[in-house]
Amino acid sequence: MSLSLDATQLDRYSRHLITDEIGPEGQATLLDSSVLVVGAGGLGAPVIQYLAAAGVGTLGVVDDDVVERSNLQRQVIHADSDVGRPKVDSAAAFVADLNPDVTVETHDRRLSPDNAAELIADYDLVVDGSDNFPTRYLLNDACRLAEVPLVNGAVYKFEGQVTTLVPDGPCYRCLFPEAPDPGTVPDCATTGVLGVLPGTIGCLQATEAVKLLVGVGDPLVGTLLSYDAMELATERVPYQQSPDCPVCGEGGIDSIAAVDYSDGCGIDDPQPNA
């Protein structure tokens, strides 16, 4: 790690540098860190924006969508002139304008069981800004097997959730053992979503990411933070690591190869860990 910040960096990050909790060492850690953001949509946009501003040195962005005009009500890193452009390219251009210290690695593809392990392996931390259950369960399983921390967030109409999944804590399946059947839980395209809501939740995810990278504060490990935008209220829901969890429990899976992420994401017969 290089602790030497140049004059421009001393200026850019001055509000971090003067805090005892981050300081020059923490800032140098951020500059040397890499984060994979899965989804450059409602949640991914503020995550990318704030992690780039914070000086996280390498940001990977995974998304296979193009910018649509209906995205712009909440996906604040994309602009009207980006409509039709791949989201990863729009995100990279946004970051390049914001902070030249940050390298963006674009992955213009959908996260899948075939590429998840390879994508995750190169990063210190992953942030889940996806919009579907197969990706959420796949990320949980792949990150746990790779021992990479994962910051999970999700939104629904006026409600949001955040939780942080670290290698020695409970995983997403300890809270939600299996995904609902396809089509039983509505998505934002069907129900709508308050535009600023993913901004709030994405900023909380970015907060967790910075804390984990720098090693300060108390992350939301074993706690789900539920946010109600209509009441501006939060509720913390503690949850336990399950000894029977098919991923992080005893005898959990050692590969995602046998997991069917297309339907319920269930794991019927976990293989013993080697």
Binding site: S130, F133, A154, L175, F176, P177, A179, V185, Y239, S242
Partner: peptide, 30 residues
């Protein structure tokens, strides 16, 4: 949803054995 008793999910087909439960909605939007 997931039904939690003392911070752990309980199977939906099991008889209720707690006088207080938490119900957490599964949401996926991003």
């Amino acid at each position: 949803v997931s039904v939690l008793v003392d911070g752990s999910p309980v199977p939906e087909d099991q008889p209720v054995a707690a006088d207080t439960v938490q119900v957490v909605r599964l949401i996926k939007g991003g």
